[in-house]
Amino acid sequence: MESAIGLNHFLAVGLILFCLGLFCVLTRRNAIGVLMGVELILNGANVNYVAFSKYSAAAVDGQVFSVFVIMLAAAEAAIGLALVLAIYRSFRAIDVSVMRTLRG
């Protein structure tokens, strides 16, 4: 039974999410905005994992991987936001262009 919605449709959604996340990471100056972009990128990758898991014979491996990715994304968000708070305490700003202490 062929369905109207195929693997490529889901890959396209994942690709669009990835590209918007990349744009966010490249252009945002707000450190929290950059972290949101990273979350979008990971979500795009996850859509691909789950789609491949459905449209292949490899059982649920893709879904297990996406669960691990979600776990790491949550860890990354927690540590990233803790870092943002620490940076805010020392710079009084979370604009990534303000943090240039290590610049040569």
């Binding site: 949101m36 979350e39 879904q63 996406s66 669960v67 979600i70 968000a77 936001l81």
Partner: peptide, 28 residues
């Protein structure tokens, strides 16, 4: 995509956790 468990985890961790955490960071 028939991934019920991943959908549930997505709701719990992302919608319930990461977004709230992000909003808290913005407020703080």
């Amino acid at each position: 995509l028939d991934a019920d468990f991943v959908a549930g985890v997505q709701l719990l961790v992302y919608v319930g956790g990461v977004v709230v955490l992000t909003l808290f960071a913005v407020m703080l």
